[in-house]
Write a protein that binds this DNA or RNA. Structure first.
Lengths: 348, 348
DNA sequence: TTCCCTAATGCAAACGTTTGCATGATTTTA
DNA sequence: TAAAATCATGCAAACGTTTGCATTAGGGAA
């Protein structure tokens, strides 16, 4: 135990050993509850450790054991939808399993994403949770990382990559279920509002939409789609869209962001929901309750996704030491929550 | 360089040294751009490092240098308001300064908060950002940590603690400004809606409210307050409150959460905003734009708070090595954003 | 020529753990 | 009673860095 200025430095295993009159190895084993150490010695050492406020140095431990009990989370951005819930889930699962989470944001830039992946390996993160940036078309950098032996699990924004394990929802299927609900409620003329066409998440959901209306014998003339490239332009886009298709009785919104902005715009236009226009969305299930009327949606739980991703990853990390079990992809369930924004439409 | 199974292990400084025919110390200095190493050697070593995909082992470095370039962030919860913006700010400032952020949540439990603080020191976090749990009345655990030499900076939820440095907003002053805006707009009968009375954040804002109406010569009979203990009960609370004080022309909402719930409830009651009732809130400036009409609010930037907190903390960490500069508290500005939810009230 | 100075590099210890192997003491077995 | 087995502990090396203090070689000054 040394003194720096007025501060007592952290007690180490050696300090405890000296105090207890045993060797450092005995202390190490005692604190790890190793079977070769007698009960008497263990309790004596534990008492001293407590008295000295002993805290193991996790860097030293990691250095020795090659395990940091840390996962890195790399997100394209931190917004107010979905992401907080997902973080909550990740944190919960990680904490339950004794893992810590380091959080990074790539700001939707491929270069930053690469740099952060690299940095995560410098930190010796035991595993990586990665949600891809918008620019991440080519995934060579991920491939490289996987080859280096670090478990990488994609989540939410997984690009087109079936080559890597990831946790996602079935965007196409979920969208199809939303469409099915509109059909059940008698709607035959509705629109689909989608995000940036370059994103795989948009493409999945849009293809689900098109396939569903096709199955129902409807054409894209009857059920047109709107792709919103710039969220700031949604106001004009939406007005133009509704003006071009004045007979729509409902809208499908592919995300929370589109939902709140669309809802706002409709309020501003004086359109009553659901009397004049019904709404159904894919949502993480929070914002629908803030809006009025409450929005019928397909609940895509951020918590669930985060929790499952962190659980899968940490389990794989533990398993890795034994067999070389590979990470498994998963497609999460979404659940239809019928609230107040879709009305029964009477067909003429 | 060793081989484990089919995987090549990470190259170390020793590998580079062997390859370059120099000693490990030379490699270390070369990569650190130390002046004692010749330019020729430096570039030779850098080339080899690149070729071998060398990544420094940060655990080893930390062990040697007693600096992890890491800060721990401990939050009571991760919700959809304010917190994501704050995290974004923290991450941005940390990243700019070469720090990583480990994220933990105390779930509003004092015991977990204590455990996490302890764990953060085991991780040798260079500093800690702490937003207090609801249960954290007594701050002995923080005191203990500070004495151990770890820089701790409170943010947002700082309790009643003036003894510790923290980043906050002026809750009382901000509330007073909101009240002033209502007064300017001619309102003389309005209500204040507040959160759980045990929270210091509530107490600050409420005292600001009471002081402001007192200054204006109004009584609590004329400008009553409502304290919402359970957010789920806001519906009944609000209806009862409005029934008890039917002559109110405006409401002040102390937080985003109260704002969205109140707005929703008023919509459900068919009360038109701002024609029948004006609203003003303290908000992080995101949700006000989702609601219709857009809510006039005092903008309390989560990004700003997070950014400033992380900047202050990392600067202090760097300074600590030289002088023992102490962390400085700061009270952030809030800005009045006049939108569409407060109407001019004509007095009789 | 001798001496000193500077530039470039190497040696070895240290940071705080963990762990395979050896050691010594005690108990069990034959 | 001697050998073997068991138990509790210690020794020392290793993880991958950094860094104070040599060491060496070359070049200039005296």
């Amino acid at each position: 135990m040394k003194f720096y200025g007025h501060l007592m430095s952290r007690a180490t295993i050696k300090d405890i050993a000296r105090e207890a009159g045993v060797s450092p190895s005995t202390v190490s084993r005692a604190l790890a509850d190793h079977s070769a150490i007698s009960g008497a010695t263990k309790s004596r050492i534990e008492a001293i450790a407590r008295r000295l406020h002993y805290r193991p140095n996790l860097q030293a431990k990691s250095l020795r054991t090659h395990s940091t009990k840390t996962i890195a989370l790399i997100l394209p951005e931190i917004n107010s939808f979905f992401v907080p819930e997902m973080m909550y889930g990740i944190n919960s699962a990680a904490a339950e399993r004794g893992f810590s989470v380091m959080m990074f944001q790539s700001d939707n830039q491929l270069e930053r994403e690469k740099a952060l992946l690299w940095y995560a390996t410098e930190l010796s993160a035991d595993g990586i949770l990665l949600s891809l940036s918008e620019e991440s078309e080519n995934l060579d950098h991920v491939q490289q990382l996987v080859q280096s032996g670090t478990p990488v699990l994609l989540l939410d924004k997984t690009g087109r990559a079936e080559e890597f394990p990831g946790i996602t929802i079935d965007g196409a299927g979920t969208t199809a279920r939303a469409v099915a609900h509109l059909l059940e409620k008698g709607h035959r003329r509705f629109g689909g509002v989608f995000g940036h066409p370059a994103l795989s998440i948009t493409q999945n959901r849009r293809s689900g939409y098109l396939h569903a209306i096709d199955q129902a014998g409807l054409s894209e003339m009857q059920c047109p789609t709107l792709e919103v490239t710039q969220i700031l332009e949604i106001s004009q886009n939406l007005r133009r869209f509704l003006a071009a298709f004045p007979d729509l009785t409902a809208l499908f919104l592919m995300s929370d962001e589109l939902m709140v902005h669309t809802h706002h715009e409709l309020c501003a236009m004086g359109i009553r929901i659901p009397e004049q226009l019904s709404l159904i969305a894919i949502s993480d299930g929070i914002a629908p309750y803030y809006l009025h009327p409450n929005i019928t949606h397909l609940h895509h739980s951020g918590f669930e996704m985060g929790y499952q991703a962190a659980r899968t990853l940490t389990d794989a990390i533990k398993a890795q030491k034994n067999d070389g079990t590979r990470l498994k992809s998963a497609v999460l369930e979404t659940k239809l929550c019928v609230l107040d924004s879709v009305r029964q439409h009477l067909q003429l």
